[in-house]
Simulated assay, not measured.
Amino acid sequence: MSTAILVVITGANAWTLNDGSKHPTGYWASEFIHPHQVFTKAGFDITIATPGGVEPTVDQVSLSPAMNGDDQASIDAQRAYLAELGDKLASPVVLEKIDPADFDAVYVTGGHGPMEDLSVHDGIGRVVTTLLGDPNKVVGAVCHGVAALLPARAEDGSWPFAGRKLTSLTDEEENLVGLAPKAPWLLESRLRAAGGQFQGGAAFAPYVVVDGNLVTGQNPASAGPSAEALVEVLAGK
């Protein structure tokens, strides 16, 4: 049997800032593409899901020259990859209807969108709680996608990720991109406050934390490496 992985993408196309304004966003292109490529190469059976089954919106900033080292070939390749997956991205599975028992792993992609929807979404909370509780399954997330761990709840109401080592986009990195002063809350700070054993690496450099069956990546550069780490962890099960 092939390994079944649930890839969760934000359904939000804007992030509500602390002044009430809407910051256009969505999912970060490379944080979906690179893991999808890794999971495809590993032969995984990939299911893409979003809240409500809405078609996800790619954050156009993630495809800008400034965010891709002025490498137009890379931008063109990313756009082509997304176009190739057009049908699957246009009709994702409804996250709320997912049965966690059907999957060996879940991986939550990033972009600022998860700060808007997945950070307060009971459906993803249920999925990550269930999979984390099975030592033979793996929970993975990258960058702002780690916000999807926040709504997880154990039966006693506690946060199942308390005491676990993890990472996400750091408060320093949010400051460097200029959005920290406008953010209603910061992910690293929220994860620490919830009881996560937060670990961070150098700004915008690849950094992955593996703690048992939990795999998290810090930023866009960590998307591919975190997906590869998830594949390795599952291979060891």
Rank of each mutant, 00 (worst) to 15 (best):
D156Y: 10
V120M: 10
T170N: 02
T130W: 14
L118M: 11
E188D: 09
G163T: 05
A141E: 04
V142C: 04
G157M: 05
L131N: 09
A205D: 15
F161I: 03
D171S: 01
L118T: 06
G110F: 13
A147I: 06
E188G: 05
P135V: 07
A203R: 03
T129H: 12
A141W: 02
L176Y: 14
L186Q: 12
L166V: 13
P184R: 02
V138F: 09
A148T: 11
P135F: 06
E188V: 00
L132P: 04
H121Q: 04
A193K: 11
P181S: 00
T130L: 07
G113V: 00
M115L: 09
F161G: 04
S119H: 13
V106M: 12
P160W: 15
G196K: 07
P184Q: 01
Y107I: 01
R190F: 08
R164H: 13
D117A: 08
I124C: 04
V138Q: 07
V108Q: 10
V106Q: 14
D156G: 03
L191S: 08
V177D: 15
G110M: 03
V142Q: 12
E172S: 03
L169R: 14
S158L: 10
V120Q: 15
E188R: 01
G125N: 02
L166N: 10
V127W: 14
L186C: 03
K165P: 03
R126E: 13
D171Y: 03
L132N: 11
A154W: 11
P181R: 05
S189T: 15
A193Q: 15
L118R: 11
V106C: 04
G201V: 07
F161L: 02
A147R: 10
H121P: 00
P184S: 01
T130V: 12
V127A: 11
D156V: 04
V142S: 07
H144C: 02
G163W: 02
V146G: 07
A205W: 12
A193M: 01
L187S: 12
H144E: 13
H112L: 14
A183C: 08
G111V: 03
N136P: 00
L149Y: 08
K182V: 00
V142A: 07
P135G: 10
G113A: 02
A205V: 13
C143P: 14
K182G: 00
V139P: 01
E188Q: 13
E173K: 05
G157L: 04
L186H: 08
D117Q: 11
F198K: 06
G195K: 04
G196D: 11
G201M: 03
H112G: 13
V128L: 05
G196I: 09
L191G: 07
L150W: 13
S119L: 08
L150S: 06
G201K: 06
S189G: 08
A105P: 12
K165L: 04
G140K: 05
A202R: 13
T129W: 13
W159S: 02
G111F: 05
M115I: 03
V120F: 14
L186D: 10
L176C: 06
T109C: 15
W185D: 06
A183I: 07
A205I: 02
L191W: 10
L179Y: 13
P151I: 00
R164N: 08
A183F: 09
A193Y: 07
A152I: 09
K165M: 06
G196A: 11
V139N: 06
A180Y: 08
S119P: 05
G196R: 01
T170Y: 04
F204Q: 11
E188F: 01
N136S: 13
P114I: 07
L169Y: 15
L191C: 10
G196F: 05
W185E: 09
L149F: 04
